[in-house]
């Protein structure tokens, strides 16, 4: 039984393998981009809008409000990054319902890639906000003795983010596979429903945690000590 879609190689050329993870990622991307393009090509700026536009506006507004609620400040800067994280993971997890679709989020490679993106984005946003000196000084707080712990915390946080998403998505797929072999009719349906819920929750948690990391790193200027600590503990919940 295949655990990761990485192992499902569809095409190989000169050592470059096109596996199922990349293929289904492209499917998700195509779906998102084409859907957005199809709707935003006929955007209405008047009071009357189409229901698809209204749906997109609701989604974008909700994401923006969540970002403003968690990170505070200017939501527009983080919207493309955080919003794309959420939309990509959520779409991939929902599409897991489609028979034959292997969600790319079930691959540790994908979740690691997303976590690495967050790992890189946090200092980038923080430097953009406070300058490189301000960002580096945050590692020496509250005392320079904490420098190694801060570095370890940064790395472990990224690993935890990646493994959490991977584990949840992959486990759902694996459990469904096992249950189909044991009780083929009833349980898989329930587990699929559960997987749908879990997938959406995971998308939400991943995006929110990323925002929390970015926000805590960027906000240290106004709250120099201890502001990040309670938000980091939120990441241990799942």
């Amino acid at each position: 039984m295949e655990i990761s879609p990485d192992a499902w190689v569809l095409y190989e050329w000169m050592g470059l393998r096109l596996n199922a993870t990349i293929l289904f990622t492209w499917v998700v991307m195509a779906l998102l981009v084409l859907g957005s393009w199809a709707i935003t090509a006929r955007l209405s700026e008047a009071e009357a809008v189409s229901r698809w536009q209204a749906l997109l506006e609701v989604i974008v507004t909700a994401i923006r409000d969540q970002i403003a609620e968690v990170g505070g400040g200017e939501a527009g800067r983080y919207l493309p990054f955080i919003g794309t994280l959420f939309l990509f993971i959520a779409t991939a997890n929902i599409l897991a319902l489609v028979p034959g679709f292997q969600p790319p989020t079930g691959s540790l490679s994908t979740t690691a890639a997303l976590a690495i993106c967050v790992l890189i984005a946090v200092p980038l946003f923080s430097i953009g906000e406070r300058g490189i000196g301000g960002y580096l000084r945050a590692y020496l707080r509250p005392t320079p003795l904490m420098l190694p712990f801060n570095i370890v915390g940064e790395i472990s946080r990224t690993i935890a983010l990646a493994v959490r998403l991977y584990g949840n998505v992959m486990s759902g797929t694996v459990i469904v596979g096992i249950l189909i072999s044991v009780a083929p009719f009833f349980f898989p349906v329930l587990m699929q429903l559960l997987g749908l819920l879990t997938g959406l929750i995971q998308a939400y948690i991943f995006a929110i945690l990323a925002m929390v990391y970015i926000g805590s790193a960027s906000r240290n200027r106004s709250a120099p000590d201890g502001a990040a600590a309670p938000q980091e503990t939120a990441g241990t919940g799942n």
């Binding site: 990485d6 596996n19 990622t25 957005s36 490679s109 994908t110 997303l114």
Partner: peptide
């Protein structure tokens, strides 16, 4: 699969830009 990781990072950044 680190090759896939790199590809996914690129994919994600492209998706960010496209969206």
């Amino acid at each position: 699969d680190w090759l896939t990781v790199v590809a996914q990072i690129v994919n994600f950044l492209v998706l960010v830009w496209l969206l």
